[in-house]
Each structure stands twice: as structure tokens, then as C-alpha cells.
Simulated assay, not measured.
Amino acid sequence: MIHFDCHAHVYEDVVVNGAVRYLPKRPAPLQDWLELQTDHGISGGVIVQVSFLGTDNSQLLHALESLPKGRFAGVAVIAPDTCETEIAALAANGVKGIRWNLVAGADLPDFGSEEISTLVADLAKHGMHIEVQLESSRLAPVLSDFAALPLPVVIDHMGLPETTADQEPWLNKLEQIENRSNLYAKLSAPYRGTGSTEHAKRLIGLLGPDKYIWGSDWPHTRHEDRATYAGLKVELGELIDDRKAVQTLYGLTLA
């Protein structure tokens, strides 16, 4: 059963921070998200930093200030050279992970660099994880590098599938990796790729129990006209129980 919405974007102001691929036409107020949770039987969730705000996490942190930490958390976006003091401050204010949005040809992390090694060590020290958004065909060649990191890694939006579930590049690579213990998957936003319940079912078979979270992807930026809040929730509600993964990744529990 699904209890938490672990992927939503909340912003009271639409402002640009650097170059952006897409800018929504209207805000996504916190109160609107909370009302949707009530309407769909959700007990809490995770606010994920939206792309157009870049590394300015101020709106994310402001939203978290008004929410109970036992039921809500955040995922921020930070620069690779962010110091440990800043990471500690984010953790103290309810941020449980950082997001690497690597789509559309963005540079992949240099896993052997001192900068990335230091960042990963600092995140692990403060009980944080990394969430990765990356297209399936680009994710497959580096999946082993993510699996080797000493902290949890959440594969966002089912790995942005590009083909059928039985041929999906990153799922085929996942099947070859022996130690998948730090890998988690977010079952969300099928409309951002070729995602389906078949992709989700194959994932469930590969990672085993307690490694899945669900996200509404609200307010569905770039797909506002065809996405719904419930998304895959109804289809997957009988297949997974998100409570253990949500507690492990975000420290959240049912009220």
C-alpha cells in the first residue's frame, strides 16, 4: 500500500534561476498539494527541488518550516562543491537527499574525482541520499558506479524508460549487477518516458521488497494537461508497501 507522496514540487513564486528548459505558468502552492494528499489518502511526503529554481532551495526550506518533520522531508539541489557546513544545515532543516538532474545531455558526475568523493562522503555522514534523474540508455553505462556508492541512491521516475519493459537498457543492466543493496526506485511520472506498470513490475522483481517509493510528480511540469495526481498509485497500490523505504530514505513514519 502507498502512504506517502515522495515526489512533488512546491513553489509559491515562479522565478528563474539561471538557464531553464521550462518555466511553468503558475505557482504550485503548498496548500494545494496538502489538499490533494487529503483527497487521495496520503499521509505525508517529500518536496523535491524543482529544476527552474536551480540551487536556490529557499522556497523548499520555507515550505518545510511549516510542516511536521515526522511526516514531511525535502530533497535539495546543490553544487558539487557545496561545503559540509551547508549540507549539515540542509539536513537540520529536513532535507534528506540531493537531486542530480542529469537529463538532456547534462554532464555526468566524475565518480573518481575528489570533488564527488568528498560530496558523497559528506552526504553519507549526514544520513542523506542521492536521487538521480537520467534517461535509461545513459543510466545503464553508469549504473554500476551508482550501485557502488556508500549511500542510498534513488533512481527517479523509473529510470525514464525508453522502450518496452523487457528490453529496457537500465533494467537489463540492473539485472547484471550482483549487489543492488543501496539502489531504490521511484515509481512515478510514466509520462516522462515510456513508463508503464510493466516497467514497474519488472523493477519490483529485480530489487526485491521494501525498495520502492511512489511520487505524484505534482504539478506535472511540462505535462500539466495530461497527467493526474494519482498517477500509478492505483495500479501499484496492491503491489508495494512504501513504509520501510520511506522511513529508510526520509525518516518519515505514519502519524
Rank of each mutant, 00 (worst) to 15 (best):
Q31I: 10
E235A: 13
C83W: 00
P68M: 11
R243K: 08
T85P: 06
F52V: 12
W218N: 02
I98R: 11
K173Q: 14
V14G: 10
Q247T: 05
T228Q: 12
V77Q: 13
N17S: 12
A185H: 01
Q133F: 12
P209K: 14
A89P: 03
G127D: 12
T85Q: 15
I42Y: 00
F72A: 09
R192E: 08
P24F: 02
H9P: 08
G44A: 10
S58G: 14
G231R: 04
S43Q: 12
I213F: 07
G237Y: 06
G105T: 07
Y229H: 06
K211T: 04
S137K: 15
Y22W: 12
H126G: 03
G205H: 02
D32F: 03
F4V: 11
L60N: 10
Q59N: 12
I240N: 03
G251P: 02
G45F: 07
W170A: 02
A185I: 09
A73N: 10
R180D: 03
V120T: 15
A147M: 03
E12W: 04
F52Q: 15
P169Q: 00
D145P: 05
V50I: 15
N101F: 13
D56N: 12
R222C: 01
E115G: 01
E168D: 11
A28H: 02
D210S: 13
L64Q: 08
A79L: 14
D210E: 14
S66T: 15
P68K: 11
V132H: 01
R180L: 06
A8K: 00
R222S: 14
K25N: 13
F111A: 10
G45P: 00
E178A: 08
V153Y: 07
I42A: 03
L183K: 06
G41C: 05
V154W: 00
L90P: 03
L61M: 14
G97V: 11
D242V: 04
E114I: 13
S113P: 14
G251C: 10
A245S: 07
E115W: 08
D145Q: 13
L254P: 01
D145W: 01
K233M: 12
A245I: 06
L134P: 11
I130G: 02
L119V: 05
P161R: 00
E131Y: 08
L171H: 05
I116R: 11
S188Y: 05
A121I: 09
P152D: 11
F52S: 01
G251D: 07
V15T: 13
T253A: 15
V16Y: 05
D39V: 07
L207W: 05
P219C: 02
K201R: 15
G97M: 09
A255T: 11
E175G: 08
P190V: 03
V95Y: 09
A106M: 11
L139E: 11
I213N: 00
A200G: 10
E168V: 00
R222H: 13
C83D: 14
Y11C: 06
G159I: 02
P80N: 13
G18A: 09
L61D: 11
P219V: 00
D145S: 15
V234D: 15
L187H: 06
G251V: 09
Y191C: 01
A106D: 07
A19F: 15
L206A: 03
K96W: 10
V46I: 14
G193H: 01
V120M: 12
A63G: 01
N172G: 04
Y212C: 04
V16T: 15
I87V: 14
